[in-house]
Amino acid sequence: MEPLLPTLRGRKRYIAIEVLSDEPIQRNAFINAVSYAGCSLLGDFGFSKCGVSVLGFEDNTGIIMCKHTAVSETIAVLAFMTGVDGQSVIVRSAGVSGTVKGAETKYLKRLKAGH
């Protein structure tokens, strides 16, 4: 199928996040926890409108993609996450960017450096 024209593609935002926990969190467990928290807070339909997907997650840091109109809802979903895989966690959003590169260079690198 022909890819959509750039003007027809949905606008996205990329949220750089950090998970504070006692033990390292596995990627799959984090993805499950995000979708569970999203459906619990916003409902299945509400969460579907946010277009949330976890792009990358390693060393308790990652990037979450969402629709540009649903940034605050997505951050709220992350705020309401209390546990992943039975572990207590805090999910902290470091910043929001319009491109993956922006999120990586502005926020993720800083997070991985420990700031």
Binding site: S72, A76, A79, I90, R92
Partner: peptide
């Protein structure tokens, strides 16, 4: 504990 961005979203 939650950060200011999260509180704003809340």
């Amino acid at each position: 504990q939650r950060g200011p961005y999260e509180l704003e979203a809340f």
